[in-house]
């Protein structure tokens, strides 16, 4: 069933040309320079320190590396990170999963 619904959603997405984050529950990441990072559709904070931050996503997680990182604000669906951002990396988001 799950597979059918996913396929249906993928098909409607292609047919109707809708943004993927709306239908597929994917994160939308906005990066302002290397100073500000806004992640929508996250699934919580997994690790949190000054230099490294890991956010859970619907599939896998997102690793942010930098210096002096802080969470400016956090809401159930959205998080705004400030600091000097050096590296953004996806972990465990293979096509297969």
């Amino acid at each position: 069933m799950a597979q059918i619904s996913r396929r249906l959603r993928k098909w409607t997405n292609e047919m109707l040309d809708l943004p993927q984050d709306v239908l597929l529950d994917l994160p939308r990441i906005t990066l302002v320079g290397n100073k500000e990072l806004s992640v929508e559709n996250h699934r919580g904070v997994r690790h949190f320190s000054e230099n490294r931050m890991i956010l859970s996503l619907s599939q896998g997680s997102l690793e942010v590396e930098g210096a002096g990182l802080m969470i400016r604000a956090i809401l159930p669906q959205e998080v705004l990170i400030e600091g000097v951002i050096n590296n953004i990396k996806y972990i465990g988001t293979g096509e297969s999963s």
Binding site: G44, F48, S49, I71, R72, A73, I74, L75, V79
Partner: peptide, 29 residues
Amino acid sequence: HVNHLINALAESGIPVWDIRPTSDHTADM
């Protein structure tokens, strides 16, 4: 697990901001 607390706060809809980790197990908010 400070991050658990942050998640719990976010889920329960309590506004929390300026979360700054001070060491591995402490944070200001």
